[in-house]
Structures are given as structure tokens and as C-alpha cells.
Design a protein around this nucleic acid. Structure first.
Lengths: 199, 199
DNA sequence: CGTTTTTTCGAACGTACGTTCTAAAACGTA
DNA sequence: TACGTTTTAGAACGTACGTTCGAAAAAACG
């Protein structure tokens, strides 16, 4: 019996995403988001209690979308294949979702939603634990119990930081990372993770 | 004969830097900067024509301070020593100047000064050319004429992107990067720049 | 066809912040 | 000590933006 919705949550988050990708968090004003959709501002607030909540939800949605493939890649049986797959998935996802990647990689969570809504606190914590557990598992498989914090840092560097660094420069220009990036990431992993030098 | 200044330009930029390092560009309001110094807002505008100009000047000052050592490191006679020196200088500078590094690495130029003041256009261009020339020289020394754009991208990845990414994770927590980062950066350079595999 | 419920729609309000403006203060110098 | 110049000082103004509010529109159902 109700009037059918004309502007859904995802639609609104999509518009916000494009604005953020284009001009940074400050460009994603409520009026701007509404304007991009041809919607009145009131409709935005009918879906989201506040702008901070909207952008926080956008952040969570983006992280989740990214993590799906990353976590799956890490599950590969072969150890090095899992690591390389995860690192290269990182690059490939950036390549295929430039706008989403700009939101995720060019800004920090705090820059998007200045005051993180408390009602999303546990959801945020859950995001981290999933990846943290997967990384810990990988460290355990690779280095056994003796790894320690340095081993974790090394794996994070290889699987997250390096692909991030390689892709970021291109993201800034609004372009997908070229194939050379895959090669650079692969080479880095070979030395940082796969090799076992005596030193 | 004039009244002596109580708040100098550098002093004001220092206050702005701390606010940005602490809470991001939006936290560096004119009133906030003035408040941090115990100065009235009018004095800020007596030194800087606008907030954008202030933050733009802060950006330029920070980049210049960083570049001094980076460019010097690249001048080393030995090729690999130059590359490794520049990459590790990157990490070391971050380690020694956490606040400045947060301004430089956690935000982009556009996030600091939303509309870059045109009067600083050439100064900004000059910043880039210095480093670009140094990098091109290094590429030429390392790969000769046949390098091309891919060789430049490889060197930038090794000397800039990787150290940046390795340090960033710690900067976000407001901590200086640990020594492990130097090792990771070194290993990456060994594989990406120093080795000459047949593939 | 009227009732009910949900959503649209946009005007209106409050606030935070960049910027301007006018007056007074502080210092060197004549 | 009076004058000129620069800076301090902070109140005042305008604007951009987040948020609220009330009314109208649109469907489903009896």
C-alpha cells in the first residue's frame, strides 16, 4: 500500500561514491548527492539518518566488496599462489573499479565520516577481524608459530601495502593501473615473501 | 618604526601543520589555527590572503623540506647506493618528522587547498620538475636511452611508492615506521631495481 | 472511491566557518 | 613626546551546508 521508493539506498550511495571519487569527501554534500540523482534532500534523510551515516555505510559497502575476492584468493591451497593471488587481486580490483578504489584508497575512513556513527562500531570491527584472521592464518602457514609481529608486518606489506602503493599513483590520475604494476608487485613478493635468504 | 610582529608566517604554518596532522585538513580552520597560537584571526589574514593560500604554502614548505635530502641522496656516485639512499631517506624522513609526514603523505594537495591559488602555480610546477629531472637522470644512468616510460615507472615505484606505502601504515597510527620497514624497502629494491633477470 | 502508509519534495532553520572591517596597540624615529 | 607604520584584536558579515519540518503525491487495499 505504500508509495514505491524512487531512490534506493544503493542508488544514493552510488551517487555519493561518484562525488567522492571525483572531488573528495567534501564534494559529497547532501545537496550535491541529491542533485546528482534529481532527488530532493529530504529523500536522502529518509534513508539515512545523517550524512556521516551515509558515508560510513558507503565505506563499509566498499570495503566488503573489495574483501570478498581478497579473502577468497588467500584461501588457495598453495601458499605462494595464495599470497600472489591476493596481492594481484588487489591490483585487479583497483583496475576494474576505479571509482570505488578511489574512495577506498585515496581517503581514510576518518576523512569520509568525520565522526563515525557509534551504531556502526561493531560492523566496523567485524570488517577488520575477518581480514586479520585470514592474514594471521597465512602467517601461521608460512612461518609457523615463530613468526611474531614482524612476520605479520611482512605479509601485510607484501599483500596490501605494495599493491596499494603500486596502484595509487594511477588512481590519482583517475586511470586504472597498467600491467607493469602486476609485474612489480609479483617481483616484490618473490623477494619479500618467497625467498628465504640466510641474512 | 613599525610594531614588531608577534606571529610569523612559519609559526602560523606550524600551528596549521599540527592541526592537519592531528585531525585532517578540515580541522585546520582559521579560528582553530589562531586559537592554537593565542592569536586573533585578523593576524592570520594579515600574513596570508586566504586559508587556501596558507595551506598551499604549508604544502610547498613541507615538500621542499622533504626533497632536499631526497635529491641529495640521488646524487651519490654509485648507482645502487643512490637508489637505496633515496628510498631509505624517504623512510627516515618520515620517521623523524611524523607530523610533517602526515601532512604530506596522508592527504593530497587538493585535499589541503581545495582551490589551488593561481599565484603559486609556477612554484608548484617547479617542485615537480626538480624531482622529475633527478629521476630521469637516474633512469638514464641505470637503463640508458632505451628505458622509456616503463623504466621511469619502475624507478618511481621503487624510490617513492614503496617507501611511501611501507611508512604510511605506521603514520596513520601516529607512530614512526619501525626498522623492519627499512629491511622491506631494501629487499624490494634489490629485486625490482638491482637484479637483472632474463625474463 | 476513500483510507492508509510510505515516500517525495523543497522551503526554512541553525550553525560553523571563511573573510572583512574598524579601532586600538606597539614600536621606531624625529 | 608626538608621529607614522605595522600589527594586533575581535566583533560583524556572508555563505555554504547539514538538518528539520510540513504538506503533497503515489500506490495498495477494503
Amino acid at each position: 500500500m505504500p508509495r514505491p521508493p524512487k531512490f534506493g539506498e544503493d542508488q544514493i550511495m552510488d551517487a555519493a561514491m561518484r562525488l567522492v571519487a571525483e572531488g573528495g569527501p567534501n564534494a559529497a554534500t547532501v545537496a550535491g548527492i541529491a542533485g546528482a540523482l534529481g532527488a530532493p534532500v529530504g529523500s536522502i534523510y529518509h534513508r539515512f539518518k545523517s550524512r556521516d551515516l551515509l558515508l560510513a555505510r558507503l565505506w563499509i559497502r566498499t570495503v566488503k566488496r573489495f574483501q570478498v575476492g581478497f579473502l577468497r584468493a588467500l584461501e588457495a591451497d598453495d601458499l605462494d599462489e595464495a599470497a600472489l593471488g591476493a596481492a594481484l587481486y588487489n591490483v585487479e580490483w583497483t583496475r576494474r573499479h576505479v571509482d570505488e578504489a578511489r574512495v577506498l584508497l585515496l581517503y581514510r575512513r576518518e576523512d569520509l565520516a568525520e565522526r563515525w556513527p557509534e551504531e556502526l562500531g561493531e560492523e566496523l570491527a567485524a570488517l577488520n577481524t575477518d581480514v586479520e584472521r585470514a592474514v594471521r592464518d597465512h602467517v601461521l602457514r608460512r612461518y609457523g608459530e615463530g613468526g611474531g609481529a614482524e612476520a605479520v608486518r611482512r605479509v601485510v606489506f607484501a599483500l596490501v601495502d605494495v599493491p596499494y602503493a603500486a596502484g595509487r599513483r594511477h588512481l590519482v590520475n583517475g586511470e586504472p593501473p597498467p600491467l607493469l604494476v602486476d609485474e612489480l608487485v609479483t617481483q616484490t613478493l618473490q623477494r619479500v615473501l618467497f625467498d628465504r635468504p640466510e641474512t
